[in-house]
C-alpha cells in the first residue's frame, strides 16, 4: 500500500506544487482577480503595487494573465501528451505484436521523423498550417509520439514472447485483445514513468513555440507567449517576462520531482509494486 509517510520529501513538494498548478488552471475563472484581456492599470506596473505581480506590456493584470496562462499551457501540454501516448503506444504495441515487415516499415518511418530535430520540423510544418490550438496539439502530439513509440515497442517486444501472450494467441484471441488486454496492463508501469517526462517536454516545447510567436496566438496567452509579450521590458530592468518563465520552470521541476519518484518506484524491485 502507498502510505503518505513513505513518500520522499522531494516528491511531496512536487505533488503539492503540481496540484496547486492544476487546481489554479482548472478553476482559473474563479481564482483570477481580473479577466484575461482587461486593461487595469499602467504599462508594466511594479510587483507588489496595486497588483500583486504588477501589470504587463499593455497594462493587464499579470497575475490574472498568469492564471489563465496556466490553463492554456497545462491544457495544451496535457492534450498533446495524451495524443502522443495514445498514438505512440498503440502503434508501438501493434508493431511489436505484428512484427516482420510492418514493424520494419513503422520503425524506419519513426527513425526518419526523429532524424529531424523536433523543433525544426515543427517550425517547418507550422509555416504552412493555420495557427489554431488543435493544429498545435496535433503537431506536438504527433512529433512527440515517436519517442513513446520507441519505448512502447521496446517494452512490448519483451512481453510478446512471454507465455501468457502465447497462451492468448493459442486460444485464438485477436490482435486487439492481445494489445489491450495482455500487453497494455503489463507495459503500463514504464509508460506511466515516462508520462511525466513527456508532459514536461510538452510544456517546454509549447513554451518555446509560443515564445517564438508560433504557438498560442494572442489575445489568448500561455506562459511562453507572455514571455514574448514582455521581453522588451527586460532591457529597461522590468522583470515582468521573468515571472511566466519562472512559472514554466517551477511547473516543469515539480512534475519532474514526481516523475523521478515514480520512476524510482517502478524500476525498484520487480515493478515496484508493494514496496512503497
Amino acid at each position: 500500500m502507498l502510505e503518505l509517510r513513505t513518500i520522499p520529501w522531494s516528491a511531496r513538494i512536487g505533488l503539492v506544487l503540481t496540484f496547486i498548478f492544476v487546481f489554479v488552471a482548472v478553476f482559473a475563472d474563479l481564482v483570477a482577480p481580473y479577466s484575461n484581456t482587461e486593461v487595469v492599470g499602467d504599462v508594466w506596473e511594479p510587483v507588489f503595487g496595486d497588483h500583486i505581480l504588477g501589470t504587463d506590456n499593455l497594462g493587464r493584470d499579470l497575475l490574472s494573465r498568469m492564471i489563465y496562462g496556466a490553463q492554456t499551457t497545462i491544457f495544451v501540454a496535457a492534450m498533446a501528451t495524451a495524443l502522443s501516448f495514445g498514438l505512440g503506444s498503440t502503434l508501438g504495441f501493434t508493431a511489436a505484436v505484428i512484427g516482420g515487415l510492418v514493424d520494419q516499415a513503422m520503425s524506419r518511418a519513426v527513425d526518419l521523423l526523429m532524424a529531424i530535430p523536433t523543433l525544426i520540423f515543427a517550425l517547418v510544418v507550422l509555416s504552412v498550417l493555420p495557427g489554431t490550438l488543435i493544429v498545435l496539439i496535433m503537431v506536438m502530439g504527433i512529433l512527440d509520439s515517436t519517442r513513446v513509440y520507441r519505448l512502447a515497442r521496446a517494452v512490448a517486444v519483451d512481453i510478446t514472447v512471454m507465455d501468457f501472450v502465447e497462451a492468448a494467441r493459442l486460444r485464438g484471441e485477436g490482435r486487439v485483445w492481445i494489445i489491450f488486454r495482455e500487453i497494455l496492463p503489463n507495459a503500463l508501469s514504464p509508460l506511466v514513468a515516462e508520462l511525466g517526462l513527456r508532459f514536461i517536454f510538452a510544456v517546454l516545447f509549447l513554451s518555446a513555440l509560443s515564445f517564438l510567436g508560433l504557438g498560442v496566438q494572442p489575445p489568448d496567452a500561455d506562459w511562453g507567449g507572455m514571455v514574448k509579450e514582455n521581453k522588451e521590458g527586460i532591457v529597461f530592468g522590468i522583470p515582468a517576462a521573468l515571472i511566466p518563465a519562472a512559472a514554466i520552470a517551477m511547473l516543469a521541476i515539480s512534475v519532474n520531482l514526481v516523475a523521478d519518484w515514480i520512476l524510482i518506484r517502478t524500476t525498484d524491485l520487480k515493478g515496484g509494486r508493494g514496496n512503497g
Binding site: 515564445f211 521581453k231 517576462a241 518563465a245
Partner: peptide
Amino acid sequence: TLTSISLPEFFIGYLLVY
C-alpha cells in the same frame, strides 16, 4: 541536472540579460 533540464532556454537567457 534535474533542475536544469526543466528550465526553458529563455528563462536562463533572460535571467542572464536581467
